[in-house]
Amino acid sequence: MKQTQSQQRPKRYGMAIDLDKCTGCGSCMVACFAENNVSFREDETNKLLSITWLRVYKMTNDKPFPDTDVCYIPRPCQHCAGQHEGHSPCVSVCPATATDYSLYTGIVSQIYTRCFGCRYCMAACPYHARYFNWWDPVWPTGMERTLSPNVSPRMRGVVEKCSFCFHRYQLARDKAYTEGKRPIREAEYQTACTHACPSGAIVFGDLNDSTHQVNRIVRPDPDNHYKARNPRAFRLLERLGTDTKVYYLSDREWVRQAGDNYLADEQPGTIGPPRGGSH
């Protein structure tokens, strides 16, 4: 299998989320829960303890009626590449190599049986995309039978996060291998949230493949840390140098501006290259 991967050029799986299409319905969150055996507790009122691989935030433009505007922003793991491929905030700090960056797919993995729960990766992630299992996972009686056999449930004391439904990639890869070692087709590997989104706001695929829709939408620039050429597109906290693979799209300027921190005299698109993570 390794040989097949190395013969193909590296993938760079990523996502484009059109915030102007997102209604904040939360289908993506529910699909993610079900697909990835994400555990939950009876009382989930404290959101700082809830495991939500994909979390939908609500933003407003802070203007009074009638100029009030609202935007929902789904936030999966951003699968950062860092300033040099693999220097993600979390991967670079994990002391036990329990989280890894795949140069074949660009996906940041989490090895649950390797993680010993130091939570350094959580401290490193500015997106709060990583979650700790504060409790043992317990499902209501009978619900165990609905769990996906393709995703291992996580035990207490380890960190977990969005994997871009990596098990789906594995299934697609195996299928493609058995069918004459052909490349994986775009439709064969799609995340659960992409499938579930009723308004089609989420597009997923290989950012390096010009035949994939996500590439055509984002038009990433490989010579500039994959910054989007599409003026509607932006990434969260781009100037920190995290070089993420989740792109957001919006026609609204305040939404694009809300994706990063700017000084009073700065505007999106006018800032220089990021300084963080260049070591």
């Binding site: 700090v93 002391p95 036990a96 329990a98 010993f116 350094y120 700790f132 207490r156 380890v158």
Partner: peptide, 26 residues
């Protein structure tokens, strides 16, 4: 006490990521 899986504490030595500051600390 602080780590979530204390029995795996030895992973930090055995599976050390030499680029992590925490590994250097350990």
């Amino acid at each position: 006490i602080d780590v979530g899986q204390p029995l795996r504490g030895w992973f930090i030595f055995w599976h050390a990521n030499v680029h992590s500051m925490l590994t250097e600390v350990a």
